[in-house]
Structures are given as C-alpha cells and as structure tokens.
Design a protein around this nucleic acid. Sequence first.
DNA 1: CTAAGAATATTTTTT
DNA 2: ATATTCTTAG
Length: 900
Amino acid sequence: MEFEPFLAYEASAGSGKTFNLVVRYLSLLFMGENPSSIVALTFTNKAANEMLERIILTLEELPTRSELPQISRLSGIDEATILEERPKVLARFLRSDIQISTLDKFFGRILRKFALNAGLMPTFKTVQSHHESALLERFLNEVEVSNASGALIHLSLLSDKRLSDLFTLLSALYSKYKEIDTQRYDGKNTPEESVGYAMELAHELASLVLSKPLSDRARKTMQFEHYEELLEKTWLFKPSMEYWDFKKAYEPRMDALLHEIQSAVASQMRRREVLYFKELFAVLKLYIKSRQSMATQSNELSFDDITLNVHTLLREKLESEFLYFRLDSRIKHLLLDEFQDTSVIQFDILRPLIEEIRSGVGVNEGGSFFFVGDVKQSIYRFRGGVSALFHEVAELFDVRLEPLKVNYRSKSEIVNFVNRAFEGKIKGYIPQQSPQSSCGGYVEVLLSDDLLESLCERVALLIEKGSAPEEIAILTATNKDGSAVEEVLSERGYDVVTETTARLIAQRSVRAIIEYLRYCYFGESIYRSNCAALLGIQSDQIDRIRADEVVTAVITFVRRFTIADKSALMFIEALRGYRDIEEVVFEIDRLETSSPQSDLKGIRIMTVHKSKGLEFEHVIVLDRLGTARSHNDPIVYEYEGVQLRGMHYRIKGREALDMAYAKALEAEKMASDEDQLNALYVALTRAAQSLMVIAKVKNSWFDPLELVASEQGVLEIKVQKEKPVQTEKAVNFKALHFGTQEETLRPPKEATHDYAAVQFGLALHYTLEMMGEFSTVSLEIALESTRNRFGSVLPMGAMGEIEKRIERLLSDQTFRHLTQGDRYKEQMIRHKGNLGVIDLLVRSEKGWIIIDYKSGREEEEKHRDQINRYGEAIRSSTGEETAGYLCYLLEETIEWIKCL
DNA sequence: CTAAGAATATTTTTT
DNA sequence: ATATTCTTAG
C-alpha cells in the first residue's frame, strides 16, 4: 500500500478512527516530515489529548504495537528501520511545536498572531460568553445612537417576542451572518398590505356559509371580528370547505372564496416576513458592532468572536501567502478528525490552506490532506455543523473516500442489532462487519412503564454478575435526565460519576467560599448568613477580613472550617487566575469549569452527546424521561447541500398556504429527524460487551427505529482480574492532583534569599512530578515541560544538573526497592485541619511509604517534622504500617534518611 | 366516530 | 409556546 496524499475515511463507529489517524500521523513522522508542519485538528479537548497520548504511547511501545506493521506499509519503510529510527523520531517529536489541537484552539492561535491586523490585542482572553447584561446595555446604547429604536420596537411587535428572545436570536445569527446574503433582505418588493381584503372576503364567505341551515358549532367557527381571530380558525387552512359539518351546505363558490382568502393571507404573511427581515438585519448590524466593540474593549473573545475574526482576517483582509509567512512553519499536512461536525465557516477558514496544499507546486510539493468522519454521527447541526460538507469537500478536492466497514469495538450481537435497527432508516446505511474474534455479546431491548425502576434492576443485574461500576455507562437524552438517574442510583447506594452540569461554582463548598468572599468584600450580613447556612454553622463564627491576598484568605478559611474537598481545592486553583477580590466577586459567576469527577469510581452517567467518541463495556441507553420539545427558532433555514439558500420566517399554519415555505419546513424537519436518528446511532454504538435499551411504551425516543422487546446473546461478564483496589476505608485521605505543588499548598518557605536555589528546587520537583513513569523516556518528556516552564528563570546548566540528579535517582537501588508497588504522586492529605502534599506515596506489600524529595540539606529538622506529620496522617486514616523517607538529591550523591 | 376548541403538561444537545 | 389529552356536539 502506498501513501495516498489525499484520502478520507468514512469511519463508522468503532472502526478504528483514532488508530488510523495515529498511523497516518506517525507514518508522516517516519517519512521524515517535520512535526511542526503537520496540523491535526479535532473537535473536543478530550479527543485532542487522546490523540496526543496515543501518538506518544505508540511511539514508546512501538515494537509491540499493532500500529507498527501499518506504519511500515503506509510509509514504505521496513519495520526494522522504523524501530531503529524510533528514538530519533520521538526526541524530535517531543522537541517540536506539536500542532495537535481543537479547531477552536487552532483558530485562536492564528488570531493571536495576527491580532493587531484584526484590531485586537494579542493578549486577548478566551471566554465562554460575554456578560449578557453588559452586552445588552451596549447594544441598546448602539440602537439609541443610531436612531434605530423604532426598528427595534417594530421588530418586537412583528414577532410578538420579548427583547430577550430577540437577543437570543441575534446571537444565533451572529455566528451565521457570514453565510447570509443580507442584501436580499433590504425590504424591496414588499407585498401590499392585504388584511382588509382578506377580511372582506372572509366576511363574504362567512355570510354565505351562515345563510345555509347549519349546526350551531359550525356557525360558531364562522364568527370572528379581527384578523387575528380569523387566523385562529381551522377551516382557513383546509384545502376545501367540503368537510365536516360544512359538507352538507357546500357549494363551489365557497372554495373559490376560501382560496382567495388563503392567497391574501399568504401574501400578508410574506409581507410580514419581508418587513421582519428588513428590520432584523438592520438591528443585526448594530448587534455585530456592539459585539465587536465589546470584544476590543474588554479584550475578551468568545469562540464565535474568534472564528468570525479569523474568517474576516483570512478571507477578506490577508493573502494566504502572508499567513504562511507569519506562521512559524508552513502547514504541509492537514489531518482533520470528526469532519462531519465542521461548520461552513470553519471549513471556509481552512479552505485556502487546503487549496495551497492541493496545488502541490513549489513549497507545497509533497503535502497531504486527510480527514476522517462519519455522517451518521453528525449530531451538532444546532451548533452549525453541516454534514453535507463531508462528501462535498471530498469531491471538491478530489479526495478518495474509503469506507471503514469493520467494527472492532462491539461484540457481534451488538453489531448485528445496530445493523438491523438502522438499515433502511439512515440513508445509504452500509451494514458493519464484525471480525471473527468478537463473537458473542448481549443486547436487550425492554419496554417499560417505569424507566427508572427498570434501570435500577438492570444496573443491579450487571453489578451482581460481577461488573465493575466504572464499566457501566448510562446514556440519557438530556442533562436533566442524567441528574434524575444520578439521584435514584445514589439513593440506592451506587457510586456514580456524572459528566453533567456539575459546575464547579455550584458545589456546596465552593458556594460557601464565594459567599464568604462576598461578605469580606461587601460586608453585607446576608452573605455571612448564606455562608453560615451552607456550612451549617453559626454566623458569628465567620469573621470579615481584608482579603488582599484572595488565595491565602481562602486557604485559611478552608482550613478553619475543614471544607477542603476536591472542588474547594480546584476552586482555589481557579482563583489564581483572578487579579483581586473585586474581580472574583464580580466575575466568578462566569466560571464554567466543571467540578472534578469523583475519582472516576462508579457508574458513568452522561448525555448521548457527551458520550460521542467514547466506549464502555456495558451501556444502558435510557429513553427520555420527559417529552421531547421541538425547537422554536423563529427562522427556518433552507440549505441546499452546504449552501444556505434561503431563510423563512416561521409563522403558525403558514405551510398550508405557502408552497416554498412548506418545502423549507419539510426539509428542516427531515434534517432534524436525521439528527435525532444520528444521536440514536451514537447511543447504540458505544457498547463493547452488552447493550441494554430501556424504552417507553408510548412516545418513545426510539420510535423511529421501531424496536420491539427482545433479547439476543448471553449476558456474560468477564470478571476483572483482581486489581489492588483500595477499599473505601483506605482512601480516607483525599487523593488529589490539581495543579502543581509549586503553585498549590506548599507550606510557606523560610525566607530564603537564594532565589536561584529556590527555583532550582521547584524545577526539580516539577520534573519529578511531570514524569509519568520512572523511566528515561518519561524523564525526557518531563524535562521538556520543565524547560518550557522554568527555562527562562533557571541559571545556566541547571537543566543538565536536574537531569543528572534524576538519572542518578532512577538507577538508585534504594529508590527502586522502595518504589515497588502502586505509586501516587503529589498526594494531598488533610489531617487535623492541616493540608499537606506528599511528593511520592507508595503502597507496598508491607504498607505505605512516604517519600519526600529535597534538593538541599539545610533544613533537615523541618523536613523530618514534615514527614512525621504526613506519617501520622496516613497511619491514622488507613490504620496501616507507614514508613517515611527523606530523599536528598544532592550534587554528588543521593542520600536517604529514614524518619519513621 | 370526528373535528374544534379548551385544558393540561412539559420545556436540548456544547467547543 | 407547543404537543397532547380531554370534552363535547353532532
């Protein structure tokens, strides 16, 4: 097989998408390409990290990896040579500026480089969203200044909507406006006002109908006074009056009138649409203006701001040659993951890059473009994803499309079930194949009246059969459903892990800290009471202090009331990003960080959207607990492939009167049904071993699949090989890793004036902390991070010294002996209200071993005390043997001191 | 049994 | 706001 520069994989679920991306990436490396010339983009941070990890891991374990033969085939280099080259390639890779990231991060980087061209400061901050109220204020001000208040009021009246709804619509249009030909909506060709005419005809029809002998209820439906009342009538939207009670009195004249009325009403609706769009786009201009000025003034950009600015920059302001000139290195190879979720505007930004590569002339010779995706898993239409791009782009750049048909993830029963469920439902569905080796598996579809009860039964069954809780995932339609599941399972004593809306600032301990800071800042007693209530203590126990040093104040507070749970510690980390207490009290509501997952112990609960790209042994897909709500976007977008062809104003009943509108509405409905089906496809393809579908009897989410209650295969659970699982009792101390020791809760240092020595010590600790394993390879990686972080502050030769000392440690007999067992780095412990961090904690056969690294012997007494305290903490919380060592990594030698 | 209109229940997915 | 269910006249 030869390396194909232009290739795309249509990768169904579980068909080895990441595997192929990694093989492709590594082949390029072994073919001698510079890592910084390869750009690999994905959609989520999770996916980007996973890819980077897989690449490093594969490089490290290459001799035994199944990627090796594939890389050999693709690159045309024999395996022996590849293995020989491996250390060099790995070293080069780690030294380079690696370009594996999310699309948004990539765009952010470009924009930063060219910020000044875009009229922005290069120091801009990325935020999830702008201050809603501040933006609204600015917008209204803009409206006022431009004398557009009339337009805004008119718009509000036309749409019968509140300002806040209008504001939501504007922000949705903001991310789309580049696709819209706003010129078309300038209000020319507005149809004549036809309310009067319609009413006249309607009255004529009414009197004609009422002149006949007719039932009372039929007479009643013919009564209306205003146009609005007329629009409520059901008969107005019927194709003919020859129906129901009217049948007996029917005569052709009635239908003639009806159709005339209908066309008058349709014309009036069109009029309303034209006026609406005219005003809307006038107002949108002002909105965009306020959005831009907001971004420049606050120096904060949202994801949308970034994308749009990059687009303007690359497509309207700069030549692509200039882009290449400014980027550190020429992008020669582009690898795109999850391509089906790309939005039109995102692709438009990438387009010149691909065109350059495709041109294949001069410096672009030998470039490549590769993308992977699966239109069946396109579920982000609401965010602008256009799955039609997938095939369109393949055609546009003459990229060969190859389907990956084999599912390596799921057992055959699951694959067969999925094939049966989706064949004929998803357009052009190609059944997946199952390799011989993945025979077996289990699928159950059960219909239930009490979803949560059935869910609990299934969970109990899986656990009873020996499944570990973390192997079970429960997928729900909404976050709210996820919370309901979480509640019911916790109630029954199961450990659960949710990836749902648990925002950090929603956690109890964090809320208490925030209230405390508000009390310190504002001095209002309401905040003190809130804080006390959250902590379950008396208000007078809380003192107001001047919190000049926010972090220090919070640490004191956290210690005093012993609320140092994970969230609190993570929050302290987040607080470091704030200037002062003022910024904290006013900005903290916007902190979107989610709270840490509870050690990943327990049953996973998440939405189907979040589960995308993940895989679990046992999956239970739960029907929606509530009923689905159809979205009510006031605008119906009409797409033809990837092109936005038109926009229609959504008016109730309009589809019966306006063919073009009816067509657009129908297309929209089909697209949204497709999304729904795709979501189900994602849900049913997450399982490796067993899949259970719990469906409602009526109005089920699964209705489009026409599932029937069934059971296939045998529920077998391979019991995990006995891992040294810590019991709940043993983990009485908190195992944590947030940030690095140097910036967290290291006890305040003695006033040391030797700045260089302090930096050296920190860098040494940092390197040890960054090492994934105690191996030479890990050391190399860790040193790279240290160089990035401390390079500028360390004296000459310090890096070499660190490397020397750690290398000595790695070959030290005592160290090797002591570190046999499960190792935990940077463990935070809490004991008697004190927080501490243990450099290295080892769980050996005999008990716990504490190891603390030191770079100098100046304060040995203190160090001993520290170890003794840690030892006491571990011993009292676990009740097991505990030993403690100080490990001095000195210039010439390693010295060990046993403290307990 | 049917259609109209009133009453009632329920109300996303996220880089 | 909208989909579904309920009530009721014919």
